[in-house]
Computed example of a mutant assay.
Amino acid sequence: METDQLISIDIFCNHYKVEYSFVQSLREVGLIDTVIVQETQYIHLPQLQKLERMIRLHDDLDVNLEGIEVVHHLLKRVESMQSEIVSLKNRLRLYESLD
């Protein structure tokens, strides 16, 4: 498997000064996905922004793992609702242009 879109969890933890167990906990509850290549665990690069947000919640705001799950769930709902609003606005514009 190509590792150009992956970052080793060890390298990530060293760079962000995060405990390996914290990243493992996020993986165990399903907040992030990891892959194993040649006995090394990796994170997909597109997940970095989400993972950085979770680290800030944990470190800066002292939010526990359960709280991070709640925030993540709520943010996903907000994004979904924003997408639905855009879709509805586009449909409304279509109907308004028919008048």
Rank of each mutant, 00 (worst) to 15 (best):
L92M: 07
R77A: 03
Q5M: 10
Q5I: 13
I32Y: 03
Q82C: 09
L92P: 07
L74D: 01
D59P: 08
H73Y: 07
L26Y: 02
E28R: 03
P46F: 15
K50V: 10
L51M: 10
I85H: 11
E28L: 09
Y95D: 06
N14H: 10
V70E: 07
M54N: 11
L6F: 07
S97R: 01
E39V: 09
E66D: 04
G30C: 00
N14L: 14
V78G: 02
K89S: 05
K17C: 10
N90M: 14
R53D: 14
Y16Q: 02
Q24E: 05
D99M: 12
Y16S: 04
I55T: 05
L65H: 06
L26K: 01
Q47E: 10
L57N: 12
M1V: 15
R77T: 07
I68G: 03
L61S: 08
N14P: 06
N14G: 07
V86F: 15
D99G: 12
E84M: 15
Q82N: 13
K89G: 04
T40G: 12
Y42A: 04
Y16W: 03
Q41I: 09
L6H: 00
Y20V: 12
I68E: 01
M54G: 11
I55H: 00
T40Q: 08
L51F: 06
E84A: 13
R56Y: 10
R56I: 09
R91F: 05
I7F: 02
L88H: 06
K76G: 06
R91V: 09
N14K: 14
S8T: 13
L48S: 09
H15R: 14
R27K: 14
R91Q: 12
L88K: 11
K50A: 15
L98K: 08
V23D: 00
R56E: 13
L65Y: 06
Y16K: 08
R53I: 05
M1A: 11
R91H: 14
Q24V: 07
E28S: 04
K50R: 09
S83I: 10
Q82Y: 09
E28W: 02
Q49K: 14
L57R: 09
S80C: 15
K50P: 09
M81H: 12
I32E: 07
I7Q: 00
I36N: 06
K17R: 08
T3F: 11
S83Y: 15
V35R: 02
H15I: 15
P46N: 12
P46A: 06
L48K: 11
N64K: 01
V37G: 00
V78M: 00
H58R: 15
L51Q: 08
C13H: 01
I43S: 09
T3L: 11
V71E: 01
M81R: 13
E2C: 09
R77C: 10
Q47P: 06
H72S: 12
R53T: 13
M54D: 11
V71F: 05
R56H: 14
M81P: 01
C13S: 00
G67D: 00
G30R: 00
D59K: 14
L31H: 00
H15Q: 08
E79M: 02
I36Q: 14
V86N: 12
L45A: 11
